[in-house]
Simulated scan of single mutants.
Amino acid sequence: MFQGKRWEFVRSKIEENIASNSLAPGEKLPNDLELAKLYGVNRHTVRYAIRALEQKGILRVEQGRGTYVVENPTPYLLSAETRLTDNLIAHGRLARRNILSSETIAADERLAKNLQLSIGDEVFSIRTLSFQDEVPIVIAHSYFPAQRVPGLLDEFSGVNSISKALKRVGVEGYTQQWVQINARMPTEEEARLLGMSTSMPVFIKENLDCVDGKPLKFGENVLCASRINFLINFAELKSR
């Protein structure tokens, strides 16, 4: 007989099912009521066990969709030229992108500093939500100096690809000049878009892309921490 709290019993049974592959990575769990009947406990006990497994990074709770076994995180190579979508495809993870917003805004102090503009200058703002295997993985905010890439928003709306849109306005290649990564808890909107709990952390990846030493794009990405592993190639760094 199991010795311990009832929620610990539920937690251990779910962990056993995952370890035996009865519950595979990415698989959806039965709902709370079904699990409560299965293990002879109440729904509150089930939710407590699920919350504990979510905090351990074993389960993920998607608001309005259900609870899933966490997949193996996707390796994300940080390099001067690697793009997230290319990275997902390279690892056999299907990638797609939804456009959340595309508009012209005025540069605030932060954008002006990073893009070497004056406060109030026009900036193209593109906000997207990217998926891997139909699981939301990153909210991407991209900001461009409007005077350097005229027509970018129109081109982007037609191809839904920043790289392709940039080529259409005459920008063939660009590289990341710097990357900064921090972690914090998500806002309610971020958690909703990423299908995750507000109790789980996100990575905040900021980066500056340049062409011929001039700022082209300032990016701020919000990534679900349990779905990404950042990798750094030190051999590439030494060669620079």
Score class of each variant (00 low, 15 high):
residue 176 Q to T: 07
residue 75 P to S: 12
residue 53 L to R: 06
residue 162 I to F: 13
residue 213 G to E: 14
residue 81 E to M: 02
residue 153 L to K: 14
residue 130 S to T: 15
residue 101 S to M: 08
residue 159 V to S: 14
residue 22 S to V: 06
residue 171 V to Y: 05
residue 200 M to F: 03
residue 132 Q to V: 10
residue 162 I to N: 02
residue 43 R to P: 03
residue 157 S to P: 04
residue 67 T to H: 02
residue 114 N to K: 04
residue 56 K to N: 11
residue 214 K to P: 00
residue 158 G to C: 10
residue 226 S to N: 12
residue 77 L to F: 11
residue 191 A to M: 08
residue 6 R to F: 05
residue 55 Q to F: 04
residue 223 L to N: 09
residue 70 V to K: 09
residue 232 I to M: 12
residue 43 R to S: 09
residue 199 S to G: 05
residue 78 L to S: 08
residue 21 N to P: 13
residue 42 N to P: 01
residue 237 L to V: 14
residue 45 T to I: 15
residue 136 P to M: 08
residue 225 A to M: 10
residue 99 I to G: 05
residue 161 S to D: 14
residue 217 K to W: 00
residue 55 Q to W: 06
residue 19 A to M: 11
residue 144 F to P: 00
residue 132 Q to M: 13
residue 166 L to P: 05
residue 239 S to Q: 07
residue 113 K to F: 00
residue 19 A to E: 15
residue 212 D to L: 05
residue 95 A to K: 05
residue 176 Q to G: 00
residue 132 Q to S: 15
residue 192 R to Y: 09
residue 42 N to V: 02
residue 136 P to T: 13
residue 47 R to Q: 10
residue 26 G to R: 13
residue 235 A to I: 07
residue 209 D to K: 09
residue 194 L to A: 10
residue 33 L to F: 04
residue 63 Q to A: 07
residue 67 T to K: 02
residue 5 K to G: 12
residue 106 A to C: 02
residue 185 M to T: 13
residue 3 Q to H: 07
residue 196 M to Y: 00
residue 225 A to L: 06
residue 77 L to I: 12
residue 123 V to S: 00
residue 2 F to P: 04
residue 158 G to I: 04
residue 154 D to I: 06
residue 77 L to Y: 04
residue 126 I to K: 08
residue 107 A to V: 00
residue 7 W to C: 07
residue 163 S to F: 02
residue 195 G to C: 08
residue 51 R to P: 00
residue 208 L to K: 00
residue 234 F to P: 11
residue 184 R to G: 12
residue 47 R to Y: 03
residue 134 E to G: 01
residue 165 A to D: 11
residue 46 V to K: 04
residue 202 V to M: 13
residue 94 L to W: 06
residue 152 L to D: 09
residue 197 S to H: 08
residue 30 P to W: 01
residue 147 Q to G: 00
residue 113 K to C: 03
residue 72 N to V: 12
residue 131 F to R: 11
residue 235 A to F: 07
residue 156 F to Y: 15
residue 64 G to S: 02
residue 203 F to G: 12
residue 218 F to N: 03
residue 90 A to L: 06
residue 68 Y to V: 02
residue 162 I to P: 02
residue 70 V to D: 08
residue 47 R to M: 04
residue 54 E to F: 02
residue 60 R to I: 03
